[in-house]
């Protein structure tokens, strides 16, 4: 009886403590998602913390961008999370916007910021000051809907509507 209670206390104590430690460490350990590159720590904790939005994002990334060609990579050691990196460069815009919706919105409203700068680079826009002003001026139009594909499309449209800026953005079609 005593041994049982002792074991119980030990178990509760250890579980609680290690659960807490694990909760912290969870953030370092990355989820193995059955989606190839997305299972390489791309979305990590963000995925588990969110509901359908995140799953949708992963699915979208996978089926629309990687042609659904990712096989399950659960600990078979066959997914190569280093070699896969350059493949993302081809779809940098989509990936960037999917992963970053909040910082650019605040920065666009402020008319300056690091994420805005990165976005300008991804669009191939050399006139950073012009890009910032454009983002601020059309903030409401660009971030009307909080959805990555829409924001990306809106940005393209807004840039194209300004001939001067558009001429300096090499990656806007």
């Amino acid at each position: 009886m005593q041994k049982g209670i002792l074991a119980g206390i030990l178990l509760i104590g250890l579980s609680a403590s290690s659960a807490l430690l694990a909760h912290e460490k969870k953030k370092h350990a990355h989820y193995e998602e059955p989606y190839g590159m997305a299972g390489c720590g791309m979305w990590t904790y963000a995925i588990s913390d969110k509901s359908q939005g995140a799953q949708l994002g992963v699915w979208a990334l996978n089926t629309l961008i990687f042609d659904g060609s990712q096989t399950s990579a659960i600990s078979t050691g066959t997914s190569n999370c280093v070699a896969a990196r350059p493949k993302m460069a081809a779809v940098e815009q989509k990936v960037f916007i999917s992963a970053n919706l909040v910082p650019p919105s605040a920065e666009a409203a402020q008319g300056t910021g690091e994420t805005l700068h990165a976005l300008a680079e991804i669009f191939g826009c050399s006139d950073k000051a012009g890009f910032n002003k454009l983002s601020q001026k059309h903030y409401e139009k660009i971030f009307k809907v909080n959805e990555p594909e829409a924001v990306l499309q809106n940005y393209h449209n807004v840039i194209k509507s300004d001939a001067k800026i558009a001429s300096q953005c090499s990656r806007i079609s």
Partner: peptide, 26 residues
């Protein structure tokens, strides 16, 4: 069992290369 597995080397450790903005967000 996840914390125990981590302690005793059950999981695989792998290298991954991802964009910096992913880590900044995280």
């Amino acid at each position: 069992l996840y914390p125990l597995k981590g302690l005793f080397g059950v999981y695989q450790g792998k290298f991954a290369m991802v964009p910096y903005y992913i880590k900044i967000q995280e």
